[in-house]
Nucleic acid binder design. Sequence first.
DNA 1: AGTCGTTGTGAATCGGCGC
DNA 2: GGCGCCGATTCACAACGAC
Lengths: 364, 364
Amino acid sequence: MLRLMKKHTRPPVNEILIGDCIAHMNALPEGSVDMIFADPPYNLQLEGDLLRPNNSKVDAVDDDWDRFDSFATYDSFTRDWLSAAKRLLKSDGTLWVIGSYHNIFRVGAQLQDQGFWMLNDVVWRKTNPMPNFRGRRFCNAHETLIWCSRDKNSKYRFNYEAMKALNDDLQMRSDWLLPICTGRERLKVNGQKAHPTQKPESLLHRVILASTEVNDLILDPFFGSGTTGAVAKRLRRNFIGLERDAGYAKIAAERIAKVTAVDDPELVSTPAKRAQVRIPFGNLVERGILQPGTVLVDQRRRFSARVRADGTLTTGEAKGSIHQVGAHVQKAPTCNGWQFWYTEVKGALVPIDTLRQKIRAEAP
Amino acid sequence: MLRLMKKHTRPPVNEILIGDCIAHMNALPEGSVDMIFADPPYNLQLEGDLLRPNNSKVDAVDDDWDRFDSFATYDSFTRDWLSAAKRLLKSDGTLWVIGSYHNIFRVGAQLQDQGFWMLNDVVWRKTNPMPNFRGRRFCNAHETLIWCSRDKNSKYRFNYEAMKALNDDLQMRSDWLLPICTGRERLKVNGQKAHPTQKPESLLHRVILASTEVNDLILDPFFGSGTTGAVAKRLRRNFIGLERDAGYAKIAAERIAKVTAVDDPELVSTPAKRAQVRIPFGNLVERGILQPGTVLVDQRRRFSARVRADGTLTTGEAKGSIHQVGAHVQKAPTCNGWQFWYTEVKGALVPIDTLRQKIRAEAP
DNA sequence: AGTCGTTGTGAATCGGCGC
DNA sequence: GGCGCCGATTCACAACGAC
């Protein structure tokens, strides 16, 4: 599962590549990745062990360090990995980045400068953050994720129904309440945490479920302890992990080896309504489910129209598709005829959409 | 209350200055402002109309003041008003900026570039955001505030205890749940909203209570409908509002005129613990509240020490302040002796901090 | 007076496909 | 690429009117 640098014509799948992430990304084929999740190092001010793209080490922060030089170095690093990521993404692919106030504003500005198109900023609210011990600031209880498509006009994937279902049938908001990674989920080595910033699997679960489909390829350029790979495997997605530290890569590989994929792909896929087979309204007439001449009404019986043999409706004065006639009688610009029109079955009004669903159920 | 441009030697207080905010800021004296709250244009970049599922049109922010040609234009505007703001701030003053994902990353990067020091990013979670009508993204349910001091080493004000009290005696977190401005609070003109982006007073209440003291001077360079001024007046702070639109300035002035300041300054001031009179532990001994020789113990009676006449403690082997000895017995680097040590009063353990509070209550 | 249903609205970067 | 059509899509409140 662990590999060193190599030029690839096809992306190596479900592997961890050890080394500098930018060099690895540049060796992978253009436009080959569906989604990227990135948890880049935070700013120099805290860590001081940032590597330049060429793997040379940035001088550690000391009393003489110049803030402007440091931000410039971090910006340069950000620019480089983001442009490599953009090259790798499919045109309809999306990118997630997570960060804190130390680095996320710089990353966000770079994203916009490079033409990524922001879809949402998402706040991970921690149920159990570390308190502010000195009482000099607000408790820093969240991190920020930015979700963006490769380009402004990308037809990106968003599994709206899956997210809505996850949230008790209310549309998912941009603020997510999830615990930090603790307890048995937290990887340990000799009783010490194996990685300082291991992300919780619940966070990746939501990210992956929201923005990918089964068998999609997910890249994580800062793989660390491999949370992205573990959740990708469980949800039957493919992944590539890039990690410069061979020790972390080994821990991640061992972790992922223990993960079992959900056995049934249907359990981890939520097909969008938009992706369902299209059934023309005329099919209902052809198949005798609705006879020509049947009278359709709206829910409050304010309007009515008759079904014609060619699958159009007529009110006498107006004629056209179920959508067009629905819009016309309401004097509205548009209308979803499937939901607007009802037919009477045994004295009760039934939306014609119910009839369509029966056809779909017969021939899946 | 409304004034036009003029060069000032002292800041004009509790007034609204009409005109370009940068010119006004440059005409105000350097280092004269305690806190700045800024709600700059978000640069939303909207294109077509958006319809709700019921075909009604969303009343979007399409005002001229929110339109910028490019990110470069927006960045230049941001750079200019931030540098003017920095000049105006006292060296220990703080700046708040609010924004959405459209602009906040650019503003945040600029703040860092100009040497402001970030203290927190704060998320305003809306209880009642506008939904995402097309189901194409997560519901955009929050906005982001950045709170920063003028410089890295500023001794900024943070009313920790006031924030903790506001949050049921739990440390205030960086995610705030507050409703948007609706109902009677929302200013209307002829039944239409008077300003497209009026902020709720609850948000400013928290911002002002967190970071200012009674009689402080607060500047709002994008005054709009004057929420900052209204809340500042009620909480007995002073304000300067800058607004380029004379119509908005008039509405704000009328609004603020109706606000009544809280009558008792004590109700809106929360002196920090560290601003309270310092009581040396020795005072308790001098005043006979604790006799030399009294045995202090920790809450679980694992450790004990005896009080000496000079206000130090001794365990026999170690001797020093209540803090030093507390740290020593625990083998901890530091210890707050006031909270660590207890004395027995009528069979019950009482923290020595309680004794200190009694002294403070006697002579306030 | 109180309850219940209807209507309105909020800083919004809010389609996809075939011809 | 442009155009036209199909058809998918909303939550929390406040205000108001009906009963």
